[in-house]
Design a protein around this nucleic acid. Structure first.
Lengths: 329, 329
DNA sequence: ATGAAAGCGCTAACAC
DNA sequence: GTGTTAGCGCTTTCAT
């Protein structure tokens, strides 16, 4: 495995010149450039990122913090991040916390140890204090889930408004007893989405029934399914369900189907995110579309700019209500 | 941001001693160890991986090559890889080729440039020649999809046998007209799974109907759905469908449902992989369970051993037929 | 048990 | 336009 010295020797030039050729600097004569390129080819030389990264004190790695890889919502966002990262010669370190604070620490250490140049945090369960502290010394962007107090730039949607629209849609098509499958209200998005739910009910003078509000520890099929079991056991069964995640909604759908009930005739269902799966269920799922890919692209641009030392501003992106079979007829 | 020199100065020792403390070497006196640890704390010192990695000529990064992040099959495998990687202080660089050879080149370069210590390749579309060549100089393991000729160690399942069992199951419950939704036969697993399909038919003296064999460019819901459309249009419509991926099977399921037909009464469906979502469909999906997590763990262990310079041996893992609603009754 | 010093592979400031 | 050289932060050999 040749290094830059050997290339220089082979080409009969200095290492500086080789470096210049490597980095496409224009101050090199065509003649010497060719000599160098020949030497590179002859020796099968590949510049080492290890040396370059140390010298430039950068890793060209972006760390993405997510709770779990199993929610397609994150995957779509990651795709967006990826597209920007690749074009800017960055690589992505995907870090799942699995809601485990220990893991979080390991990943925070990675940026402290210069293994990563910055962080895009999408983990609602992240320790906000630690993140804020880390952000004093390292570039960090919040994506989707955020804390305003942290002062860390974020890109997200208006969760309250989105939730409000989803529930309003259910009310408009005639539902008055609407259950909410929310995640843990320790997360901001959960609180915001609940606010939207309440707002819609209030606006239509519908009572807020505490028995209709459920919380799940995590977002996943099984949590939605389990919760739906409870909902079906309610004496005064709701006629509609709004779940704050498509995964929860799909689990709920499954449970309703399994009990021989019909969606939307017996119970209407609305989800959140518009993951691909949500169009493969039977019936297809009405949901709030988040601009996931775009969100990822923006988050990546923000982070890279932050790494460069530029100022970046937070953004709120648009969402959209997508009406499908689970609330039709 | 302090470096090792400043810590040494602060502690009144040499950098060598600080390094020894950092790496937990036992030759350091308790007294000096404490001095060093105090200095580290006082200066908020964090050792730089950049320096360490250059010195050790390693990146402690494992590159995982997959076609796309959107197939949950890969995610489960990745989880397994991750569990081993974390415990061994490695990090994972997730690389999607999106079946784009250009991307593949970028990722191969990453290991040439020492940005990654080795590769776990799960991409069926990988250029086998290039991979073989790369494997001469760099540690590589093949996971799930493989080429024997390459001489690169692999971990996988017996695809032919798995496919054979799936189709045999359909035959056993009375089906004689069984369609196959296969992926492109340029991939080994596609050829193997077709072999299993053929073997089962032959064994039961059923004719091999070319019109019942379909190929999709990629694995994804939409491909399954589109293909099912074609199958439903067949004059002599099959009574069962075997798809070589759960994603395809779920897309097919969707299309059957949308046409008002019943699974399994009108058409039975069998998938492959046993991704989580296969249990959330209506009806639930009969499928071949692959030991994805285990496969990931083994691949990671193999790669790390290979990086250490040890010899590693290929492995074939067990699979299992999981019978659910889509072939019941 | 500890220190001095070399060197991993690269870039960039400076000199010519 | 090209070369010399210092140095990024670390580990490790060789002395002592």
């Amino acid at each position: 495995m040749a290094n830059i010295q050997q290339v220089a020797k082979q080409a009969g030039v200095s290492v500086a010149t080789v470096s210049r050729v490597l980095n496409g600097q224009s101050t090199v004569t065509l003649k010497t450039r060719i000599k160098v390129e020949d030497a590179i080819k002859k020796l099968n030389y590949e510049p080492s990122m290890l040396g370059r990264n140390l010298r430039n004190s950068e890793s060209r790695i972006l760390l993405i913090l997510i709770p779990t890889i199993f929610n397609p919502f994150y995957l779509e966002v990651i795709k967006g991040i990826e597209s920007i990262a690749i074009s800017q010669n960055y690589n992505i370190l995907l870090c799942e916390t699995d809601s485990n604070p220990e893991r979080e620490n390991i990943y925070f250490d990675l940026v402290r140890k210069k293994m990563a140049d910055g962080i895009i945090s999408m983990d609602p369960a992240v320790n906000a204090d630690k993140l804020t502290k880390l952000a004093e010394k390292h570039p960090i962007i919040q994506c989707s889930e955020y804390s305003v107090d942290s002062g860390i730039p974020y890109v997200t949607i208006d969760n309250e408004e989105a939730s409000y629209r989803a529930v309003k849609h259910l009310i408009k098509i005639g539902h008055e007893k609407i259950a909410l499958i929310n995640s843990d209200e320790k997360y901001l998005y959960a609180r915001e989405r609940k606010m939207g739910y309440q707002k819609a009910l209030e606006e239509h003078h519908l009572p807020l029934n505490k028995d209709y509000i459920f919380h799940t520890e995590q977002l996943g099929f099984d949590y939605g399914q389990q919760t739906m079991k409870k909902i079906l056991n309610l004496k005064d069964r709701p006629t509609a369900v709004f779940a704050v995640s498509d995964l929860l909604a799909i689990g709920a759908l499954k449970e309703i189907n399994s009990n021989g009930l019909h969606v939307p005739k017996d119970i209407a269902v609305v989800g959140f995110d518009k993951i691909d799966f949500s169009n493969m269920t039977n019936p297809t799922l009405t949901t709030i579309a988040q601009p996931m890919y775009k969100m990822g692209k923006i988050a990546a641009k923000m982070l890279i700019n932050k790494i460069k030392g530029e100022e970046v501003e937070s953004m709120i992106l648009n969402h959209e209500l997508v009406i499908r079979e689970s609330t039709l007829g």
